[in-house]
Amino acid sequence: MFKDTLRKLMLTLALVAPVAAAEPLVFTAIPDQDETKLRERFQKVADYLAEELDTEVRFVPVKSYAAAVTAFRNNQVQLAWFGGLSGVQARQLVPGSEALAQGVEDAQFRTYFIAHESTGLEASDQLPESIQGMTFTFGSKGSTSGRLMPEYYIRQQFDASPEEVFSRVGFSGNHSRTIDLVESGTYQTGALNFAVWESEVAAGNVNTDAVKVIWETPTYADYQWTIRGDVDERFGAGFKERVRKALVNMDDPKLLASFPREGFIPASNDDYQGIRDTAQALDLID
């Protein structure tokens, strides 16, 4: 019995020992959309970066926004495609980390509020008063366009928390799921990333008779590539700038369409000060 135990202990130790190999650049992304699509998209990104940077690049999928931030913070990934809020959280936790690049659209991002046709809500230029008392779903708890900004505007409009405004508040998990849940009537209304909506509609995946956009928020800064500050020490001087250049130079139309972004432009931490203030106001970060 004891020998058996000892053997198991040895095995555990073997298991714990870090795997030594030439270090690849590992990156992740917030799981904001259907996983199959994300895997396809980011595998292509990994291949592209590997070629541009002449190093091994690996993509690791995670199950939640927080898991993406944690992996970045724990230095298990060095680069990540974050949302506005998750990026702010990550850079606050990892001193020296930097927002590298954002999509052209991300400087002017928006949230769409959508409603099931049975609600009778119509598109208007402010959040309709009659939305009060209906059921409503956010996306992920840690999402910028699916949680932070819609909550901010709900509070602005009604001067009350979402739980007070709506009869039921849920978190669908991701933007694709938000469309599904409102389209099927599980929730009467919801809020999501406008880019996911546009691309799903364009791909014919949405029954626009059952669900439609009723309001769009003012613009704010959202998604960005963020990199750890210590990558130059790890991968060689100038590595960070090479990654930035590779991202900004990405011009494969198919690859860009999978995001969907027109292209990438340089970004800085300061671009996200507004998001940070909003998150603090909603007590989502300390």
């Binding site: 095995l11 555990t12 795997v19 724990n74």
Partner: peptide, 19 residues
């Protein structure tokens, strides 16, 4: 099974003990 299993867990990502 007990002997083989630890080798079938997959690699995951390396642990950083500072964390």
């Amino acid at each position: 099974y007990v002997v083989v299993s630890p080798f079938l867990l997959g690699n995951g990502l390396p642990i950083m003990w500072g964390n």
